[in-house]
Amino acid sequence: MTATMQQPARVKKRVLPNLVTGQEIVLVGVIAVLWAALALSTPAFLTAGSIQPLLVSTAPIALIGVAMTIVIITGGIDVSVGGAIMVCSVLTAKALVGAEVNLPVAVLLAVAAGGVLGLVNGLLIAYGRVHAIIITFGTANLFMFLGLQIFGSGTVNGIPGTLAFFGRGPDGRTLGIPHAFLITVLITAAVWWYLRNIAGGRHFFAIGGDEQAARLAGVRVQRRILLAYVLTGLLVGLASCFVIAQGTSTLDQSVGSGKELAVIAAVVIGGTSIMGGRGSVLGTLLGALLVQSVASGVTQLGWRSQLSDLFVGIFIIVAVGADLLRARARRSR
């Protein structure tokens, strides 16, 4: 009796992947050590006034990173998110200034715009059968063209505080937790659960592991890939609202520039394999948090802010290097 009860439970345990991966534990440890070191050297670090802005600025990178993780799990990549951020944020900013739209409409507009851009990428990649990096290099240029055209000349000025709900100010927090970060955590948790427990989520891993095998096993590969890029677009739209809310009342043409690499850095530090088939959105959230903590720490220690990029580079090497070593250990076992 007891034996038959235990049997299915054991099978289930084998089918589901581990709750947390090694990389996530390592990242939590690294962040803890880093925060402790920063708290010791600058007592101001572990205060709400310092942690809250850190969480707010982590949100957009982590949010896009969640979708980018899925894209990379399928074996693709999206280097056009920087351009897409520009299009979504300038469009939304113009609507806020010109049409004085309210908060839900602004968010809807940004998310819809992002969805359309993601759809363009997804259709070209899934049905054009071209490597994602080439297509998204191309669409990155097209999106930037589109964004600059909407900008017209110069900057968008006098953006009203409609989006303060996502911002750095007191309007952007509940019980001291910034809304932008809270939303990011909730979406990360939902996607984490979906990727781990739902067949549709497992299909992304199957595609990244072996696209041909996944197709033969009945996965609708093209639709799944399309979905991954559309989701990226939707989350880019939401993240653009965060970006506008975090800024001043002025939006300039450099918005989004270089963000694609920051997002990819967060994803790979989080332990997602660039080869596809393996990855975790939880790791991505931690990766983004680590990168922002380093940036914040460098500023608080009074070093040059550009020095944080050096640490980002080193972290990528260490994180992926550790992953490579573990993979080698797995193989030899």
């Binding site: 990549i77 990096i133 690499l261 990819i264 850095a265 790979v268 660039i274 550009q306 020095l307 944080s308 990029d309 050096l310 980002v312 580079g313 080193i314 990528i316 090497i317 992926v320």
Partner: peptide, 14 residues
């Protein structure tokens, strides 16, 4: 992609 992304950040910063 990863290695040169990392060195991109490092060299740019330096």
């Amino acid at each position: 992609l990863i290695a040169t992304l990392a060195t991109f950040y490092a060299y740019k910063s330096l």
